[in-house]
Amino acid sequence: MTDILKIENLTYKRNQRLLLQDVNLTLTAGKIVGLLGENGAGKTTLMRLITGSAQGHGTIMVSGTQTPTERKSHLSFSEQLRGFNRNTKVAQVVAFYHTVYPDFDPQRFHELAGFLQIDVNLRLGALSKGMREKLIIALTLARQVDLYLLDEPFSGIDSMSRKKIISSIIQWMPEEATLLISDHYVTEIAPILDEIVVVKDQTIAVHRAADEIRSESGMDIEDYYESLYEGGVNRD
């Protein structure tokens, strides 16, 4: 099986503080992988290191390419649209994506937008949190790449939107692509996960197949995840 993502000996320091160390992770093609961990454990940081938005030490390969520029052309990250003003229309953001990403498929976006009921005539500032997140998902999945990175797509979102987003992921993810999705509520995404990766103590503590956890430990993913934090560390 081909490796979509291969991280070797990755260490990340910022402001003289060690945030991640000795991270090694290999993800193969065609998987949905849950990236779990407490808030502040480094889930977002790990994704930003993969995209090249943050700069660490070590090797990161996406679809066999190593330079950040090449990596960027093989991955699609759920960026928060910070580069746009509040009064930018959704249609303009879509046009921007269409311009800068050769792999952006307007037809796919159109289908996704229809499914998620996104109104492209609205301005960014007028979108509810759920609608904004749906837009980000639609933009991210409308690109045809090998690796999709969705950073906490469900935070602060109602359950109806959550279900819609999960369905859109199943429906539109290319078969050979791999999707890394971070979340700190495990239960809602557990049924769609092939594997889970847990970031804990500045490194990757666990990387296992979800059904293997269920059959070997007899625990659900949530319980298994919580068992990693003996003594019950507070999670929000």
């Binding site: 065609g30 998987k31 369905s167 199943i170 078969e175 049924p191 769609i192 092939d194």
Partner: peptide, 17 residues
Amino acid sequence: VRQLAIDLTVNVNTIQR
């Protein structure tokens, strides 16, 4: 397979298996 995955809200690989 993909339709089953969508109907049951699970991953394609799980259906495949």
